[in-house]
Structures are given as C-alpha cells and as structure tokens.
Nucleic acid binder design. Structure first.
Lengths: 333, 333
DNA sequence: CTGTTAGCGCTTTCAT
DNA sequence: ATGAAAGCGCTAACAG
C-alpha cells in the first residue's frame, strides 16, 4: 500500500542509506536529489514516522495535559501550543484530567506509553506527583499557568500575586474600600496567589476583602453560585473581583439575575480578556493574561529541550499582566 | 532505559514469541504467565506501541479534527470521544482546522502522516474534498454533526431540519407570528437545515421569518452583532430563534445591552443546553442535542471499523433532539 | 557522496 | 505450549 524506501530504491537505484540521507538533510549531489525527488512524487511517498521513531527513539509527538477541556483559557492555550508544535512536525496528544487527580496521573501514564517526547501541562494537583512518571522516563515537562511544589521543571507563569495587587490598587484608586472576591479553591496556585495579592494590598490600606463562596469550583456555575449567594444577602461590598474568566462570567450572570447593574450597583473587576468579554456591555475592566505569549514561550521551551542536547537547569518564565480598563468599575466618593 | 522483551526473556528464560503471546492473549500455561507477570512488574515493563505498530500496522491512534477549538460544542464532543477511545487504548491526536479549508486539508495530511487508524471529524467544508486523502489511505472516517455531499462514510448527526421545525412549532403554539433567526452561514449543513426547518414550518402557517445578519460567523461575537443589528432597528419580531450555542449567548448579550428583557420584550428560543445555559435567567427554552450519545455512537462506529474485518457499506445515524422548556418564550395573544 | 550492514522492539509464520 | 527465524520501514555507524 504505502511506498517505502525500497520502492524509491527500485525507481532510482540508490541505496537505502542515501535515501535516508535525503530525508534527513545529508549532503547529496543535485542529480541524486532530483532523482529521489521525482520518485517520491511518483510514489506519493511519505516517511513512516513510526519506523523512524522506533529507530531514532523519537515519536515526534508531545502530550498536552490540561485539567478541563471546557475551560476557554485552557483550550485557548492548548490551541496555540498545538499550532506551534504542529508547525514543527510534532503531533499533539491532548488529554484532559477532567479535574481529577487520579485521571491526571493515568493520563501521564498514557502519554508515557505513547512515547511522547515531552509534556506541556497545566497541572491540576500542585504537588507534582502526577509527573513523577514522566521524570522517571526522562520526558521533559513544561508547566503553564501553575507551579508545582515538589517538582522542578520549566514553567511559564504570570505574576498572579501582582495581578491581584494591581486589581486591588485600581479599585482602591476608585475609592472602593470593601470588595468581594469570587475565587476558586485557594489551594490552586493561581487562585491563591491572585487572592493573596489582592487581599494583601487591600488590607494594607485598611480596606476589607470578603471571599464570596469560598472554595467554589472555578467554573461559570461556581462563579454564579458564589456571587448569587453573596449578593443576595446583606453586604457592604461596592465591588467584586473575579479571579478568572469563568468566574467573571458566572458573576455577571448572577448580577443580571439579581437585577444589579454594574457599575452602578456594584463594580466588577474581571480576569482574562476573551471573546465573550469583548461582547459584554458595559465593557469590563480586567486583568489580561498574555495567553499567546505564554503558549509560544512554553512551546519554545519544550522545543529547545527536544532539539538540543542536555540543557542545564530549569527555567521559570514569569510574565506580567496588563490591565484593560473598561467601564465596569465606578468611582465612588 | 526502557525494558524490552529481551529483558523479560533474560528474567524468565522464555522466548520472544512466547512473551509476545502473553501480551496478545495467546494460550500460555499458568506458570508461564505468572513468571512473565512478575518480570513485567519487576522491570516496570510497558510494550512499545511504536514497535508494535511498525509490525502490525496499527498505530493505536486516531485523529480528531474539528473546525474550532473555541466552540464549546466541538470541545464537548471531542472530550467525550477522546475519553471513550482512550479507554480502549487509542490515543487521540486533536487538530483544529481553525475554520479554514486549507488548514483542514493540511490537518488531514498531518494525521495521515501520523498513521492514525481512523479519523473522527466535524467537517468544515461540506464537499468532502478534505477527506479524499484519508480515503486514499483507506483510513476510516466518521463524521459528527455534519454531512458531506461528495463523500460517503459513517456519520452521526441529528435531525437538524426537524429541530428547526420543532422550534417553529413551539413558537407558533405560543402565538408568535414573526420571528428573527440568528444563524451562521446557511451553507454550513447544520445551519442551513435548522433554518430551513424553521422557516418552512413558520411560513406554512403564514408566519414571517427574518434572517438577522445573514451569513454571520457562528460565534458569540457573530450572534451578538447580528442580534444587535436586527433589534436596534425597527422590527416586528416577537421572538428570536438562535441556531447554536454561541449564537444564543451572543444574542442574549445583545438583548442585555439594548435593555430588552426576555421574554417580556422579545422571546428567545435557543440551541444547545450547556453549562452557561443553565445559569442564565430566565431559564432558556432550547433544543438540546444528545452530545454524549452522539460522541459515544461515533466512537463506537469507528471502533467497530478498527477492530473488525471489512464491514460492508456505511451507516448514518440520525438522532433526535429534545426540547427543553424554560421560561424565555412568552405566550402572546 | 554513496553503499553495506546491523539493528530498533515487536509480531508472525512455521516448526517442534 | 513454546521456540527459531525472518522482517516491518527506517537509521546510523562504518567503509569505500
């Protein structure tokens, strides 16, 4: 069915190793190249990645492991990463851990079995235990978005603490002294940092922070429930800080339902700047993460490991965030 | 590094072919099995899928090809499909065509190169040209959601025409005689069918259908723009039918912005029943697609092709939809 | 610059 | 029930 080197050999008379060189950038004289070229075209030949991988120990595939395929942040990141890697000939095997530690560990085993050459992941569990297996097989890993406590490897993250701080500063500058925070579990690295950055800044100015529906899922529904709970009860908050995209949307839906207008009744400071944000009116004031840059850097970090010999040490790239000022935050006396 | 059959041979004394049989369900006597079992455990052995694939012509991987990784419908489908296939040992290589025909074709080439054993796709282009390459390599394909005009293969779709009709019937029963439809390009199979099903039923009752912002992107932004455009101008529509998830959300955002309340000012009939829908109040009346069932059937269709010898003919499974009645549609005189 | 040779790790007749 | 041997398609010394 599929043509092999042998078929090319039959047509051109060249040996297998010469043909191999053709496909691996060796030095051949032009006439040889051309001959092979036409044979390749005639035969509609494509090198067999499996066979190549068996010999050269390169599967030309990498694993992408994320907690939730339903999170726009995750899929956006993976879309970019996948795109870059594919351009370089790697295929991406995507797994989601479905927000479950056990599933996450199984997924790593699965990827190891598939002989991925590297793994790019947004880790679910903060310990790093899920990646032990990858380490044992010496498969390079790059983290995006979250750090791990017991596992040292390359990572691309943002300064989450500072992002929280920036949100607080902005709200303070607008006169807010009492804010609710709609956050996911504080044990999740990003959530914890963002909250602490915010709370820290707020309290150091004598302002008050209340966690709305602590330890909620960080989903639209979670944000919705937390915000609904908080705002339907008596409260003094003049603003709400939502620490990711889904939580921001959920909060807005809750406010809509309660008939609370922003920024008139309560100011909203959101997180992430994606399609839906662009469509909400009044426009949202948010912290924007450089998702494309994060993806690109992570992909490049991995590619460097894959394509170079040993690289000493590990790199953690910390990127800054940007505030996008919309009109969802009111200035109060 | 990684243990091979040879290592097992060293520990147990059995020949490679016996060991191979162990891993492929041959008949071995219990003692032999046990011996191999312990060696496997000791060595932390895992069979090398690449090597196995080279010989047996099975890569144990399938390609998943979708138009847009940002569409919740697409990712949900692929999440389910991926889960089922992974349970059966297959890895899924996910590609998105980024809503571009050329990219879609390249993706098929890429998957073919990666020797996927099958492809499950939500096709972008309706012609089927993008899958010609797969056909040439005799790679079975299963379509989800959309049919192709010039390519016969297995497919799992819903009765889109009927779904549109059902929406129309419901609105008619509530007294609506003039409705706007927020739709994506009618050239897209699902969009065309849903619209025609709706329009057909509506007009056969002397009611009027207007396409809001014809040929918009079927994204949140597209729905938003189309609905905004339509409703900010003078119009007679008492209801709006949105033909997918993103369009539904976009429409709602537009209504919110215009200060139009549903169902008081205008009734909303949506499509797809996902997390965000659950959170919108008043609750939406929608057509629900059996996404999980679609995914499962598609995965099984493919698995059957992969694991059986030749199967004659091709199967198109058409599933029904369900209406979820919320309170977003008003009864009018 | 090109060819020879020996595998990569596993499967698969064909013997025994 | 187990083993010997050949080979999947490609790569990588090593010669020439």
């Amino acid at each position: 069915m599929e043509a092999t080197y042998k078929d090319i050999q039959r047509l051109t008379g060249f040996s297998l190793s010469t043909i191999s060189k053709y496909f691996n950038g060796g030095n051949l004289r032009p006439r040889t190249k051309e001959a092979i070229e036409t044979a390749v075209a005639d035969l509609n030949f494509r090198v067999n990645d499996l066979a190549r991988g068996l010999k050269s120990r390169k599967s030309m595939s990498v694993g992408l492991l994320i907690p939730e395929l339903n999170s726009v942040f995750h899929t956006t990141i993976m879309r970019h990463v996948g795109h870059i890697l594919r351009m370089r000939g790697y295929s991406c095997i995507v797994c989601d851990s479905n927000m479950d530690k056990k599933t996450e560990r199984d997924a790593v085993q699965f990827l190891v079995d598939k002989m991925v050459e590297g793994i790019i992941t947004i880790p679910l569990d903060g310990s790093g235990a899920q990646l032990e297996l990858a380490k044992r097989w010496e498969i390079p890993c790059v983290l995006i978005d979250r750090k791990l406590t017991n596992f040292v490897t390359d990572a691309v993250i943002i300064d989450n603490f500072y992002a929280g701080k920036a949100a607080a500063e902005y709200l303070l500058s607008k006169g807010h002294r009492n804010a609710a925070v709609v956050s996911g579990p504080l044990g999740i690295y990003t959530m914890g940092e963002r909250f602490r950055g915010f709370e820290n800044e707020f309290s150091s100015h004598g302002a008050k922070t209340t966690l709305a529906g602590i330890e909620t899922e960080f989903s639209i529904k979670g944000g919705y429930n937390a915000a609904l709970d908080f705002f339907k009860k008596e409260n003094e908050a003049t603003a709400v800080f939502c620490t990711n995209y889904e939580l921001t949307l959920g909060t807005i839906m809750a406010l809509n339902e309660l008939g609370l207008k922003f920024p008139d009744d309560v100011s909203v400071f959101g997180f992430d700047n994606m399609e839906l944000s662009a469509v909400i009116k009044p426009s949202l004031t948010v912290i924007e993460q450089p998702m494309e840059q994060m993806s690109r850097l992570a992909a490049e970090l991995l590619l460097r490991r894959l394509e170079s010999e040993k690289i000493e040490g590990h790199e953690t790239i910390v990127l800054g965030t940007k505030m996008i000022e919309g009109s969802s935050v009111a200035k109060i006396n």
